[in-house]
Amino acid sequence: MASPGVPLSGELVKELERIPDGEKIKQCIQCGTCSASCPTAYAMDYTPRAVIAAMRAGQLEKVLRSDTAWLCASCYSCTVRCPAGIQFTDMMYALKRLGIKHGITPKDDRGQKLMATFVEDVDESGRSSELWLMAKYFMRTGPQAALRDAAFAFNMWRNRRLKLVPERVKAAEQLKAIKRALERRQG
């Protein structure tokens, strides 16, 4: 379950150590360039700059309960503009992982659900398939969105851009071996 805020921040910093330039997060000068460059900051509870402030204040759990990380479109505008060379997009990814690891559900969990579905798909077959991804995702989020996107699926199909049988590669076995090796290591 969720640990108190300060260990969460420590854990995040440790996570970032695996990433080239991840340690630069300590050098944030709170200039706000990231927030100003972010196309979705307006919809986030914590802007990118505020995420780092919250981390420093040991308030990460609040950030994880908000939708913030799941509103990140992964566009890397913040990353290329940050004067301190901080890989902020990777920080958003790290937040997503941290939330999942500690069982913290954001107030809008659709992003989490879509990602979980995607991961299952790839784990299973080695490929992702738009149709199955959507179908499973809608089963998890309710029929409303499915109806909304029926037109989308029809349009894709009509233009011969939908594969009805998901691809499954022989390499799926290799992926399973990779997955097992990692699970063993993590105990």
Binding site: E15, R18, R97, M115, F118, V119
Partner: peptide, 8 residues
């Protein structure tokens, strides 16, 4: 998407 669950 994948890197959001497990980066290794």
């Amino acid at each position: 998407a994948y890197v959001g669950t497990d980066e290794v």
